[in-house]
């Protein structure tokens, strides 16, 4: 509560001062990304082969999308633990609708996005109207969405249209489609962030009371952040299908927590209001590369889980270097 009261002064601080405060975090994010890329390539030079690049970015894409979705919710002062379940639900609904037919690929796209949006609206309404804690509310809806996914597709199966899996593995002018898609996500965000609602979301996350006093529609902004997250998770569902080529109701179970880690590594403050989805994208790539690096250095598998946990903690600690400064 004290934080909320302190928020107005923070928000009114001059722009330059605000940048000075977050700079450390994003330097750390950028540095971590560069270190991860250099290490991964040094240890596994085959990552630079055409297949290496295409496959690595294809692996990034679902987490990159969910990280963007998570970043928007977190910047808006919320948290979405159901992101992975939304990805699973949208993907299985899309598989059932498409039935492997190329003609229905567009319909599948629309349905995946629609499913994501619907899930996001459910989360948004619960958090903004019923005012339940986002952590618990989305933990519960995650269970609901996973349950629905199991009803929609009781056993793994179904075929993804060849046009989707095929395009996902092609290259345009030598650049793999998966790379283009990751870049497109970043560019897409640069467009979306111009929207007024994104300013409202940021203001709400920075301090709901102050935002409300400044005539920001706080509840609407919260709802919008979850709805946006749902749509992007729907897209992630399609990315998952592109990778998998088939539906599975249990897909994406790790995505929700990994996206939270990616968001924090990306310099987004969990208390809301601070950070950018671009940072979250960098965080997602760093996180995905971390597992490739741990694999490439040939660490015994029994140590892998421990090490990947330590890497995440290290990355979080580095990204949070700026935090004490903000307190002063």
């Amino acid at each position: 509560m004290t934080e909320t009261k302190a928020a107005p002064t923070r928000e009114r601080a001059p722009i330059t001062a605000r940048i000075a405060r977050v700079r450390v975090a994003s330097w750390a994010t950028a540095a971590l990304l560069v270190v991860a890329v250099v290490l991964a390539i040094a240890l596994q030079p085959s990552l630079l082969s055409p297949y290496g690049i295409a496959s690595t970015f294809a692996t990034f894409l679902p987490l990159v999308l969910v990280a963007v979705a998570q970043a928007v919710v977190v910047i808006g002062g919320g948290l979405d633990l159901s992101a992975g379940a939304i990805v699973a639900l949208s993907s299985v609904v899309a598989v059932q609708v498409m039935q492997g037919s190329d003609d229905r690929a567009l319909l599948g796209f629309a349905v995946a996005i629609g499913t994501g949006l619907a899930c996001g609206l459910v989360n948004g309404l619960i958090v903004s109207r019923l005012r339940l804690q986002p952590l618990i509310a989305t933990f519960a809806t995650a269970s609901v969405f996973s349950g629905l996914a199991l009803l929609v597709l009781p056993t793994p199966g179904g075929t993804v249209p060849a046009v989707l899996t095929g395009t996902f593995r092609q290259a345009v002018a030598g650049v793999p489609v998966s790379v283009l898609l990751v870049v497109a996500v970043a560019l897409g965000w640069l467009v979306v962030r111009q929207l007024r609602i994104m300013r409202h979301i940021r203001a709400t996350g920075g301090g709901p009371a102050a935002a409300f006093a400044s005539l920001v529609p706080v509840a609407g902004a919260q709802l919008a952040s979850y709805a946006f997250s749902g749509i992007v998770c729907g897209l992630a569902g399609l990315a998952v299908l592109g990778n998998a080529g088939s539906g599975d109701p249990f897909i994406g179970g790790d995505l929700a927590l990994n996206s939270v880690a990616a968001v924090v590594i990306g310099g987004v403050a969990l208390r809301g209001g601070i950070g950018s989805p671009i940072g979250a994208i960098a965080g997602a790539i760093t996180l995905a590369l971390a597992s490739t690096i741990l694999f490439a250095i040939g660490l015994p598998t029994s140590w892998r889980a421990l090490a990947s946990g330590l890497v995440v903690i290290l990355a979080l600690a580095l990204s949070a270097l700026g935090a004490p400064r903000r307190q002063r």
Partner: peptide
């Protein structure tokens, strides 16, 4: 901060 993140991404 955004420019930095973008730059890092773009270089990658």
């Amino acid at each position: 901060q955004r420019a930095l993140g973008l730059a890092a991404l773009a270089t990658t």
